[in-house]
Each structure stands twice: as structure tokens, then as C-alpha cells.
Design a binder for these strands. Structure first.
Length: 229
DNA sequence: GCAAAGATTTGCT
DNA sequence: GCAAATCTTTGCC
């Protein structure tokens, strides 16, 4: 047989790849998989998998764009903990965003997962998107045509909507193969993706140099990049 | 105790 | 291209 089929054994994402420099971890995370095992109550009970194609780095208390800029608080505490854990927060009162904690405690750093390419469980992602229908969509009425498959998780809020992730997942160990929400290496034999960097998005409040540092990492040409790409 | 702003998305203009 | 939706967290009185 050729490459691994759809039932090839998953390869856990090594915590060491997240324990060092966050910018190196960002490059390691691109091309890796975000996976969620079905749980009772999940749409269709399908395993959902996406290929990570866009992340942003938030590094240290000195980073004025990071939630860690306030020092350790009840919300951001997990960022000061060990690498590999999930940090999920609510932004604008309606969208959840998933981060992967990096660097050893007590250094606060994380990678925001901004976009993934749907690989498996697309029907469950669509169902989850419909359930988590955005507040603005509800308020302004009907309209909404369903997004194409490649756009199901094409943004930080959409990743969480498609994978049914909320703040209750904060602290989940994404490197533990037993976790229902976890990271996996790309299938053996898959070529590592090309990588481009840009400044981070939506952080004008941070000021220089934080608004300009090239800490957004993406796979150029992916159809699943976030809108503000 | 209250005001302000936010690591976004969407539909309409 | 713009502004609304929505509520938690932070900052200041």
C-alpha cells in the first residue's frame, strides 16, 4: 500500500515541540492536525480533524498584544503553566478562540489557532456551525448560505464553532492521546508545508513594535485561511 | 460598583 | 467598506 489511509494510527503531537521557543513551535504546529473525538451529544458522533494552516504567537508579559500583559489573572492563568494545554477565551462576547500554551512554566506564551483546513468529520463541523450560529446572524435575520467546506473553520472563532470548543476546554492537555480534543502530527510521509509570516491581526491597541512583529504564521495558498489574511 | 474595550464574524450599504 | 451583536475581563472611582 502507499501512504497511510484514513484509519492510519494517529501520532500524538510531542510536547517538546511546544516547550521551546514559541516561534519555532508555531512552525511545527502548521501542517499538524487538530482532532476531536466524538462525545455524547456531539453532532453526528463523528471524529473531526483539521489541518492547521494559520497561527499567531503571543509571547511573554512584555507582549502588549497578549492577554498575559496584565500579569497572571484568573482568565489567563493557564498561559503561565506547562506547554501543551489549551487556553480558550471568549472575545467580543460571542466568539471562542483556541490557544495552545507554549514554553515552560512560568513563562506565559501561547499560539492562537486561527484557521484549519477540514480533513474529516465535515458533516459534524457543518452541524456544529449551524448550532453555534453567530449572534449577529440571528439578530439580522435569515440570509446565511452555508459556507463551502474549505471555509468551515477559516477563522479563530470559526475553528471553535466547527469543533464545538468553549472555555470549559481550558486546561485540557492537547498532547495527551487520551484527550478528546488534541493535537496530532501530520500523517507520516506528508510533506511539511511552505510557511509565510505577517504581522498579527486585530491588535492595533498593542502599539509598536507589537503591531509589526511577524508573529502570524500561515500556509500560503490554503483555501482555509482567515478572512483578514 | 460601573464604564470601556476586546486576539471576531456577519450582513447590509 | 461599515457597523452591529453580546458579555467577560480589566481598570478606575
Amino acid at each position: 500500500m502507499g501512504g497511510p489511509g484514513p484509519d492510519a494510527p494517529a501520532r500524538p503531537f510531542p510536547r517538546e515541540l511546544l516547550a521551546g521557543d514559541t516561534l519555532a513551535a508555531a512552525r511545527a504546529l502548521l501542517g499538524a492536525r487538530l482532532a476531536r473525538e466524538p462525545e455524547p451529544g456531539d453532532p453526528l458522533g463523528e471524529r473531526r480533524v483539521g489541518r492547521i494552516v494559520e497561527v499567531e504567537a503571543y509571547i511573554g508579559e512584555e507582549d502588549r498584544a497578549s492577554h498575559a500583559r496584565f500579569g497572571r489573572t484568573a482568565r489567563n492563568g493557564v498561559m503561565f503553566g506547562p506547554p501543551g494545554l489549551a487556553y480558550v477565551y471568549l472575545v467580543y462576547g460571542m466568539h471562542h478562540c483556541l490557544n495552545v500554551v507554549t514554553e515552560p512554566a512560568p513563562r506565559p506564551a501561547a499560539l492562537l489557532v486561527r484557521a484549519v483546513e477540514p480533513v474529516a468529520g465535515l458533516a459534524a463541523m457543518r452541524a456544529a456551525r449551524a448550532t453555534t450560529r453567530t449572534a449577529v446572524g440571528r439578530a439580522r435575520g435569515t440570509g446565511a448560505s452555508p459556507p463551502p467546506d474549505s471555509r468551515l473553520a477559516a477563522g479563530p472563532g470559526l475553528v471553535c464553532a466547527a469543533f464545538t470548543i468553549d472555555r470549559s476546554r481550558t486546561g485540557d492537555d492537547l498532547c495527551d492521546p487520551a484527550s478528546s480534543l488534541r493535537l496530532e502530527l501530520a500523517p507520516d510521509g506528508e510533506a511539511p508545508p511552505a510557511i509565510e509570516t505577517t504581522p498579527r491581526v486585530g491588535i492595533d491597541y498593542a502599539g509598536e513594535p507589537w503591531t509589526s512583529v511577524p508573529w502570524r504564521f500561515l500556509v500560503p495558498g490554503s483555501p482555509s485561511l482567515s478572512r483578514r489574511a
